[in-house]
Design a protein around this nucleic acid. Structure first.
Lengths: 220, 220
DNA sequence: GGGGGCTTGTGAAATCATTCACAAGCTACA
DNA sequence: TGTAGCTTGTGAATGATTTCACAAGCCCCC
């Protein structure tokens, strides 16, 4: 029972990361579906896109409420709104990128972020040669300004794209200054204080999982 | 019992992706450990690095054999070699990058790949303006050469970094030409023929998982 | 208004992954 | 040679996630 008349909170015990990851996927498909002008979608259709099963889709959603109509499926518009709210995308997030090397610069200019409500409010580098570079309207700023800017702009998320050996020190600085979530692209294990969320993306690991699968048959 | 005297095959039923991902991490820590001159390492030390437990480390390894000495731990050198062999890193892999935009160019120049046995043998783009660009010794080639080059150079892995709407057509082309594994950076769901492995990396999803955690408390 | 054909939402069952707990085995040293 | 102190390797237990299966509910049409 869910009438969408008021902002809801989703009283959550513990949600598996796999569920959250799939919700993010569903959201992407829903947006495509909406662009095509479809009004409703069934769990089976959503599952077909995402390579999962209709039961999985329904179970994922059931942790947060019931959003469909039996016999009919889901309103594309309403389900989109519901998932956006579940994921916390109803208000925009501010992101800083620490490290203006190849990856940092690529991310700073990546359209996929801004289109989903993540606004890059600062890009930082230690190298004087990179400070002042223009990346898509943003100017690379010196790392020494990090603390001041975090206090001023209050970004919630920091993306770390510096070399492995510099990563921990910078994470310490940005979390001390108030950053609450870190997305780490540096190939180094990082630790963060309690209350700060950390995720890591490691390109080499992704290729190594492919290598394992190629080597050991289709057994992942 | 495992004497490393002959190339082994690891007679594997089904290994969880989480296990393979951790093995890749362990490998990174082992290399650091080796660089520091340590000769042996215990499952507990390895676990401390990776934010897991000693039992998990031992269980992960136990799927492939026994590599340690009771009472002593693991020889850093031998375990490194064993994991490299498990992951299939004992011989080099050839990679092509399809799409020489920001992300593609960044990946083409990323040191982390070559240092782990992944050699980028070609970068491709459709845009005449990008064809001919030099990326770290590689010259961007026209997409029309894809099939010819795949037949000639026999790369096993393709990294897809083109816009979402172009991705499926290119995956169809490279898999038809013989590519056996695809790493997809395009924010689009792709399908591949049987026998081809597909993995996806989606930056927006990673940020959305962070947003969920920030919104819903520390419940992932 | 009633029946047929769908599709959701959800407990229960099955599968999969992690953690526990301990015997077995190694080294060091008396 | 025997004992103490570690650490591995691994079945068994626990915990988490996915799949199953079906009652409940909705729409359409007769």
């Amino acid at each position: 029972m869910n009438d969408f008349t008021s902002p809801q909170t989703f009283p959550v015990k513990h949600i598996a990361e796999s569920t959250v990851r799939r919700l993010s996927l569903y959201l992407r498909f829903l947006e495509e579906f909406e662009a095509k002008g479809h009004e409703t979608i069934s769990s089976g259709e959503l599952a077909a896109f995402g390579g999962t099963t209709s039961a999985q889709v329904r179970k994922d959603l059931s942790f947060f409420g019931s959003f469909g109509k039996r016999g009919l499926g889901y309103s594309v518009k309403d389900l989109t709104a519901a998932i956006r709210e579940i994921l916390g995308l109803e208000h925009p997030w501010s992101v800083i990128i620490v490290g203006a090397g190849k990856i940092g610069a690529a991310l700073a200019q990546y359209r996929g972020f801004s289109s989903r409500g993540f606004t890059v409010v600062g890009v930082y580098d230690k190298e004087p040669a990179r400070v002042g570079l223009k990346l898509d309207g943003l100017v690379v700023r010196p790392e020494s300004e990090l603390e001041r800017d975090i206090h001023r702009l209050k970004p919630q998320i920091a993306v770390i794209t510096v070399p492995a050996e510099a990563a921990q020190a910078l994470v310490d600085r940005v979390t001390a200054a108030g950053i609450k979530a870190v997305l780490n692209f540096a190939p180094a294990p990082l630790t963060v204080p309690d209350g700060v969320t950390l995720r890591a993306v490691n390109m080499a690991t992704e290729l190594e999982i492919l290598a394992f699968t190629l080597t050991n048959g289709t057994t992942v």
